[in-house]
Design a protein around this nucleic acid. Structure first.
Length: 287
DNA sequence: AAGAGGCCCTGATAGC
DNA sequence: TGCTATCAGGGCCTCT
């Protein structure tokens, strides 16, 4: 669920808090993530000073003063928590993304700073952390990634060229990081709704105007989501603090069998499984 | 090469 | 109450 907007929200708040801070101690409680945390992880980042927190696509990039860096991917369920040492009793100084307080289970890593501790939690272990000796080494890692929706290169020309002879459906391309970086399952449905394109449509059958709309609405949806602090789905019943609100702006996601929100459209939102992933769309205004 | 599908993993929820 | 089945989905992998 952390797609580009959620990761950007984490980046912004994290950057504010840990920029300039020095890592005093690192404790790894569980090394099992998508990639096993190597045993020299602790030693590699200890005593390093944080220069800034960057982001590419759904990746956080913690850059140190010596230009080495730590790449963090939250996967499906990764969350980052900052626990103030002064307010230790409450354990809830600041939480990022969708967890209001420090969970009891699945706290994989604890990084101690002077005034607070940073916790990486990940129940489903689809996330990972990787150390790079120099930030320039990241270029290789991101070699196969397409542009972010915000890049000027993600335009109608690029899209229509890419889609020539492509038989796969448009929905699958929107979540394919080789084509465009940062869009996940939720925003893909929302973008296609605004474009009035059905998710199952073959990419090669899109018009140039469709490609223009894809470029435009991808930027629009992600920008709006960032402005709203991202989307907090799942446990937003009992959460507080830095939660996002974009889930309130969903037009189609998780709205199966409800009325289409487009004025004057009498359509019903349908759910269709495409490549094992749910897609939501209006049965009338999306063609 | 492109595309389809499997798999990793745990927690929430539905149904009996 | 407690069991099982299903779903959530990012990304990597294999197979055709």
């Amino acid at each position: 669920m952390p797609e580009l907007p959620e990761v950007e929200i984490v980046r912004q708040s994290l950057n504010k808090k840990i920029k300039g801070e020095v890592i005093k101690k690192v404790l790894v409680k569980n090394r099992n993530l998508r990639f096993k945390i190597p045993h020299n992880f602790e030693q590699k980042i200890k005593n390093k000073k944080i220069k800034k927190v960057d982001r590419f696509s759904k990746h956080l990039i913690i850059i140190f003063e010596d230009n080495s860096c730590c790449l963090v991917h939250l996967g499906m369920s990764g969350t980052i928590h900052l626990i103030s040492k002064i307010e230790k009793s409450t354990l809830t100084n600041t939480s990022f993304y969708h967890s209001p307080q420090l969970p009891k289970k699945h706290n994989h890593i604890e990084i101690k700073f002077n005034k607070f501790n940073l916790i990486y939690n990940d129940p489903r272990r689809f996330g990972y952390l990787l150390i790079f000796n120099h930030k320039n080494d990241l270029k290789k890692k991101f070699d196969n990634f397409g542009p972010e929706p915000f890049y000027s290169t993600f335009n109608a020309d690029y899209i229509s060229n890419y889609f020539k002879n492509k038989k796969k459906n448009i929905k699958n391309f929107l979540i394919d990081q080789k084509f465009v970086s940062g869009i996940g399952n939720i925003y893909a449905s929302e973008i296609l709704f605004l474009c009035k394109i059905v998710p199952g449509k073959k990419a090669k059958n899109l018009t140039f105007n469709d490609c223009k709309k894809l470029s435009y609405f991808s930027k629009l949806v992600l920008n709006k989501a960032i402005k709203k602090g991202g989307s907090s789905i799942r446990d937003f019943k009992n959460t507080f603090g830095n939660l996002g609100s974009f889930q309130k702006n969903f037009n189609v996601y998780q709205r199966e069998n409800l009325k289409c929100l487009k004025l004057s459209c009498k359509g019903i939102i349908k759910k269709k499984i495409i490549s094992n992933r749910s897609s939501f769309f209006c049965n009338i205004c999306q063609k």
